[in-house]
Design a binder for these strands. Sequence first.
DNA 1: TAAAAAGACTATAGAAGTAGTAGACTTTAT
DNA 2: ATAAAGTCTACTACTTCTATAGTCTTTTTA
Lengths: 145, 145
Amino acid sequence: MLSKKTKYAIKALVALGKNAGNPPMQIVRLAEQEMIPRKFLEQILLDMRNAGYLYSKKGAGGGYSLNKEPGDIYLADILRITDGPIAMVPCASLKFYRKCDECHDEITCGIRKTFIDVRDATLKVLAQTSIADVIARETDGNFRE
Amino acid sequence: MLSKKTKYAIKALVALGKNAGNPPMQIVRLAEQEMIPRKFLEQILLDMRNAGYLYSKKGAGGGYSLNKEPGDIYLADILRITDGPIAMVPCASLKFYRKCDECHDEITCGIRKTFIDVRDATLKVLAQTSIADVIARETDGNFRE
DNA sequence: TAAAAAGACTATAGAAGTAGTAGACTTTAT
DNA sequence: ATAAAGTCTACTACTTCTATAGTCTTTTTA
């Protein structure tokens, strides 16, 4: 299950994507509009900013805006920042590989092989779906390709 | 991430699958062999039994054995017993559908649409991979199709 | 240049979920 | 009758997730 943190992050990016072109959006406004607890959102935006996805400006007239094109921000990358690995077992993770506690022989592990397939299937969607795609799908029923 | 419960469940099913034909296997032996805490395994096996996947026999000479062919036990079903929904958001779940707290308009939700795609991709693997497949993959490098 | 408007950063608390343990009970074989 | 199993329920410890609080820094503008 996605954490709320991740859901909030995606929602915030979508909102900021729609806001592109306009002056930056303040945390408070974003929090109200998307119904996200303000201080929680604050942390999330910070993470996204430190990861290079957002631009922020302090002081009066400041706020947040996207630091990349909505079409260049992929869900897979966002999930990794907020929730960590995408794979369902650490030993099948591409970016957060770790040996499973329970596992003795990784090479022949049938579970691992299966969950590498799952990971690949998941990534095929998440690494190709951008914030722009999510926005596009909000309106029309179908998109992509 | 898969819970340990699920990993243990799969391991137990695989072990029992390999044991098919022989007399039933006792919890204690299974726990030792697979290095799973005994009492924890006990609960897991019970769940699997109540779901119809295992046959159990009490008393001396008792133990556990599979109640189905290894080829008829699919990972998707096991995961659902031990970890619940396979989808990453409740509103995209096939078997455990629930409205997301944060969501106002599910029909146009771009996030939901994307995660339905993810769910389908995941299920394409998990609903077609059986315990028999996992066992087969343990030995040879490739299997399936 | 002071005040106000914003974000940056750290710490902490409460809730929920996960992993594991304990113990008493039931059934069955010998 | 006894011992060898599984059944069932409750509980505890631990970790992670969600959220909140408070202080500090930067920037604008009157």
